[in-house]
């Protein structure tokens, strides 16, 4: 089975992200693989191990620098990585990303495509279902467990109300959540292999796609209002005394 994991590169979550002159800036904080997408790679590798003769291809739509994120996936154990990069892809919204990814997925002839739940930067959580819709494939979202059997895939979806078991015929699009299991650390051998790998770069014409026009665009970037936070430490001789004071403070906030 040809398994694909779709990943994006984002500023590290420790980064001090700021608005500067209408642009997002994160100083010299490192760019990393989107943390949710590490679970996608982990899920793909688990399925490779569970299904003989499978391979994992990792795809990213992004700038040249995103090769580093792809190398992380290779170091984790992916067989192959592809960067889709084109100057015409600067203003990409999620529908646009989905159209480009769908074209690349077709070219790779993927049978099971695994996404992360959402990106850390944009946080839309739309691209997986939009890719499925563009391809006309079933969407099995927010999987915490995946099982492939006789040309079908069954997942346990982790939703607000509990877990739902849903199945569909392959090819299919999945997204995964943290319950899939901790992403494995790159092995020493993996890191060596990844550092030597050449990652092909496909342009839009390589995948037979045209540049999608953005429907969703940013009009303004703002810093969130700064919150006044000075902590009042509640102390006392006994737990009961502290609790008594704290309870009064909480009640005075009128939030109950």
């Amino acid at each position: 089975m040809k398994i694909i994991a779709c990943i994006k590169q984002v500023p590290d979550s420790e980064a001090k992200v700021k608005a500067e002159g209408g642009q997002v800036s994160w100083g010299d904080a490192p760019l990393v693989i989107n943390p949710f997408d590490e679970y996608a790679v982990e899920g793909a590798l688990q399925q490779k191990e569970a299904n003989d003769g499978s391979t994992v291809t990792v795809i990213c739509v992004g700038p040249e620098s995103a090769k580093e994120a792809l190398k992380h996936a290779l170091a984790m154990g992916a067989d192959e990585a592809i960067l889709v990069s084109d100057p015409a892809l600067n203003d990409l919204d999620t529908v646009g990303a989905a159209r480009v990814l769908a074209a690349a997925i077709k070219k790779v002839e993927g049978e099971m495509v695994i996404f992360g739940r959402q990106t850390l930067d944009n946080g839309a959580g739309l691209t997986p279902a939009q890719t499925a819709r563009v391809l006309g494939w079933p969407m099995l979202g927010l999987a915490g467990l995946i099982k492939v059997e006789a040309g079908s895939v069954t997942v346990e979806r982790v939703i607000e109300e509990g877990r739902q078991t849903v199945s569909a015929k392959l090819p299919a699009v999945l997204s995964v959540v943290q319950s899939i299991g901790e992403p494995r650390y790159p092995s020493f051998m993996g890191i060596r292999k990844a550092s030597k790998a050449t990652i092909p770069v496909w342009s839009l014409s390589d995948i037979g796609a045209s540049a999608p026009a953005a429907i969703v665009t940013r009009a303004e970037l703002m810093s969130p209002p700064v919150r006044e936070t000075s902590v009042e430490i509640i102390a006392g001789e006994t737990p009961a005394e502290i609790a008594e004071k704290l309870a009064d403070k909480i009640l005075a906030e009128k939030v109950l």
């Binding site: 500023p11 979550s13 608005a19 997002v24 850390l120 930067d121 944009n122 969703v216």
Partner: peptide, 14 residues
């Protein structure tokens, strides 16, 4: 909110 709430954006859909 974007970037985990570190920034806010105003956004439009055409």
């Amino acid at each position: 909110p974007i970037y985990e709430g570190k920034l806010l954006e105003k956004t439009v859909c055409s």
